[in-house]
Design a protein around this nucleic acid. Structure first.
Lengths: 234, 234
DNA sequence: GCGCAAAATTGCGTGCACGCAATTTTCCTG
DNA sequence: CAGGAAAATTGCGTGCACGCAATTTTGCGC
């Protein structure tokens, strides 16, 4: 299985605080990135996901195949990125937008739930396409990890640099909870829509809407947020 | 990038509760798996990690190259598996062994810390080998996710099936926290050993031993465990 | 505009991951 | 022990990921 949606090495890099040096260069790269995303999704929808080769996507975007892999490190990433696009930024911004008096746990949960339930028709159609192909579904689930860095930043701001790893651990936990919720939801829509919870192998597998899944997965983390928050502002 | 260390699809499968059907077949498979692990590590240490091809490992273990990929889905997995081996089982067992009166959060933390600080010489030597190669380091960090399933089981037992996803979210959060701790630790040993915390890009990067890193990363999750535990046994 | 240094793109070569279908091995049953 | 089905192994073919080094493009100071 292909792991990861992030091209960079996983070792923590705080990243530049100020805007990167060459603003114009950067915009061009983003344009290329978007062109690749769009081309990938369009071709995947039109011809079916596994009929699209990297070569095709690159050509449609006007770059060499090798350049494709400078932007996306797997064939599936570009397709997934077309759907997830600015998810990370949006969720982080939504959290930051909440007034400081609401519980951080609630702010995060609401931001996440709102994002995932507000997905338009285009995404929903594409999702059905993805869930049928194992590699695509894996890449889609792996993409949840991308919310970690921006979420870390916004949490760290709210917490005022509590413990060393605190913000990052909370952000990463949210990401992994979202992943679990999505897995549960996909499994439901995949199987027959049996309502109600049922037992399987000694574990409770929850049923319900995506919103239910997200709430169920995120709620166990709320106490961690509460304590971290209280720790900074008694 | 290659994702995941787990061969199985990421969608949740409760798995069989009873022992799998063919006990003898299974043991043979484990033998082959171990042979591949050992061969991989031995060759990697002897000739250097990137001088070892999958073909070599397979040959040393007496199977075809194609069979290698039936057991491990990347070249690096076998090498990493030789070190991490029964980590998942050991940690879960250590948690289960603690008396029910100790805080679950403490039980988990202690089990994890003890495991990672008790690694023998063999592992430490191999670790230095791995951290220098990006692909290997990534695979090593990805392997932390493997503790999720057994940890989920043991947590679920202690919690008595609290919420639907609760046990799994907690287990996955622990896994991701361990990953973060390891990343921080690797970054430290990689760079010059500057002591004390320092600021980089507005985030606090912690310094200290592996044990310190683990405690720092796991402590934010403790309240989540406490509440989940209290929720079942008031 | 000119030139130059940094950065992005590209081609090439290599090993790898994996679907598929054929083959061999294992283990159960009568 | 023979038959036969399930499971594991294997070979093959294909596309892919990525290191490396050469080349082209970009942005900036003059």
């Amino acid at each position: 299985m292909h792991a990861i949606l992030r091209a960079r090495s996983p070792v923590w890099d705080p990243g530049p605080v100020t805007t990167p040096p060459h603003g114009l260069r950067e915009r061009k790269k983003q344009a290329t990135r978007e062109a690749l995303r769009e081309a990938a999704l369009r071709l995947a929808v039109e011809y079916g996901p596994d009929q699209v080769r990297v070569e095709d996507i690159a050509e449609a975007a006007g770059v060499s195949p090798r350049t494709y892999n400078n932007y996306f490190s797997s064939r599936e990433q570009a397709i997934v990125a077309a759907i997830t696009a600015d998810r990370e930024t949006r969720i982080a911004a939504a959290v930051a937008a909440r007034p400081a008096r609401v519980r951080l746990a609630d702010a995060v949960t609401e931001a996440v739930v709102k994002h995932y339930t507000n997905t338009g028709e285009r995404e929903h159609e594409a999702l059905l396409l993805m869930t049928t192909r194992t590699a695509l579904r894996d890449a889609f689930l792996d993409a949840t990890a991308d919310i970690e860095p921006p979420l870390t930043a916004v949490i760290a701001e709210r917490l005022g640099d509590a413990g060393p790893h605190t913000a990052r651990v909370l952000a990463a936990s949210v990401a992994v909870a979202v992943r679990i919720a999505l897995e549960g939801w996909l499994q439901l829509t995949g199987n027959a829509g049996a309502a109600g919870n049922f037992r399987a192998g000694g574990l409770v597998v929850p049923s319900g809407s995506l919103s239910d899944q997200l709430h169920a997965a995120l709620s166990p983390l709320a106490p961690a947020f509460d304590v971290a928050e209280r720790h900074t502002q008694p």
